[in-house]
Amino acid sequence: MPASESNLTLHGAFARQFSRHARAIIRSPAEVANPLLFFFMVITLFPLGLGPDPQRLAEMAPGILWVVALLSSLMVSGKLFASDYEDGSLEQLAIAPFPLAVLALGEVSAYWLATGFLLALASPIFALMLGLPATGIFTLMVSLLLGTTCLTLIGAVGSALTVSIRRGGMLLSLLIIPLNVPVLIFGTTAVSEAVMGGNATSWLALMGALALGSLAVMPVAIGAALRVSLDQ
């Protein structure tokens, strides 16, 4: 019987969970590289499919960038809790003396930093590849920062619901794509407004509200969904 008594706070538990997954992601660089590589490859295909007209590409760039961001988020979502389910970590999360929602948020935060945050940072390169005017690049970065927060949290709910289902990828897509549509619309509109010299701030504010709302609500939904999946 160990002499030590419980000495871990809720913040400590969150930080520990974040650290555990951040380290695991760093040790498996493919987790970080795959969404960025996917983004790069798809973006390079558009000039081939639509033709090399810079004017046309620039007009379509906001929509293209946001659709590809959504698809790359979808690609990551399917794997979010898969390894935890297989190696028994989810069971341990569920019986931990801390709210499952908080621990799951720690894990999702690490994933977001490695995927959504990096994507937002790298987005100016992809924007330049499509000829997006410089006036839209800052708005694109901010919208991706806020939007990928929502996409990651929504994807985490879908992943938590389908983690115990074999080949649940299609079901995951059906579940979360409809929920991602508002984020896609707000993100694309914000960047388009910035490019046309309009007021993108209101759209970004809407996305900020969506991100904060998601941060408040989604962790609880993720925790509940994980418990349902563990109960199968």
Partner: peptide, 10 residues
């Protein structure tokens, strides 16, 4: 060190 269910910071 980072075990999710452990209630102590060992």
């Amino acid at each position: 060190r980072c075990h999710p269910a452990c209630d102590v910071m060992a």
